[in-house]
C-alpha cells in the first residue's frame, strides 16, 4: 500500500520535474546550444540556482534528521563514488549530450511535447544502458 503511494508520488514528482524543465527551456535545442557556446545563460542560471536551493534544502533535512514522509524510513543520501569508470563515463556522456542536445531526462520529456527527435535518442539510451549492462557483467566475471 505504502509502496503504491510512493509510486503515485513519483509520477507527480516526475510530472513536476518535466513541467519545470520545459518552463526553463531545458528541452529547447537552441537554449542548450546557447549554454554550450556561452551566448545564452538561461540554463547555467537554472543549474546554479537549483544547486543552491537544493543545497540549502538538503542541509536542513539532514540537520533535522528528517525521515521519509510515507515510509518513515531513513533517507538514503548518495555517497561520493570516485572511480576510473566515472571518468570514462563522463567522456561518453559529454559527447552524447553535445550530439543530441539532450540528456536522459529531457529526451523523455520531449516525447510529451511532441518532439519526435527524442525517440531515436531514447532508443539509443536504452541500447547504451543495455550495452553497459553486458560490459558490467563481463568485467565482474573477469575480476
Amino acid at each position: 500500500m505504502q509502496t503504491n503511494i510512493v509510486k503515485i508520488f513519483s509520477i507527480i514528482l516526475g510530472l513536476s520535474f518535466g513541467f519545470l524543465l520545459v518552463s526553463v527551456g531545458a528541452t529547447n535545442y537552441n537554449v542548450q546550444k546557447g549554454m554550450f557556446l556561452f551566448d545564452d545563460f538561461t540554463l547555467p542560471i537554472v543549474l546554479s540556482t537549483a544547486m543552491m536551493s537544493g543545497m540549502i534544502g538538503t542541509w536542513v533535512i539532514r540537520r533535522i534528521k528528517a525521515r521519509s514522509l510515507i515510509k518513515q524510513e531513513e533517507i538514503d543520501y548518495p555517497h561520493d563514488r570516485f572511480s576510473k569508470r566515472l571518468l570514462l563515463g563522463t567522456v561518453a556522456f559529454g559527447l552524447g549530450w553535445a550530439l543530441t542536445a539532450s540528456c536522459p531526462g529531457t529526451a523523455f520529456i520531449m516525447i510529451g511535447e511532441g518532439k519526435m527527435t527524442g525517440i531515436p535518442v531514447i532508443i539509443g539510451i536504452l541500447a547504451g544502458t543495455w550495452l553497459f549492462g553486458l560490459y558490467n557483467v563481463r568485467s565482474r566475471k573477469t575480476s
Binding site: P78, A92, F93, L95, W97, T117, G124, I125, A127
Partner: peptide, 28 residues
C-alpha cells in the same frame, strides 16, 4: 541521434548518474 543516445546511456551508467543525479542531486 541514436549514436548520441547510445553514448548518453552507456556514459550515464558508467559514470553512475546523469545530469540530474550528478549535477542537481550530487551537487546539492
Amino acid at each position: 541521434l541514436f549514436i548520441g543516445g547510445l553514448l548518453l546511456g552507456f556514459g550515464a551508467r558508467m559514470a553512475g548518474g546523469c545530469t540530474t543525479g550528478h549535477a542537481l542531486v550530487g551537487g546539492a
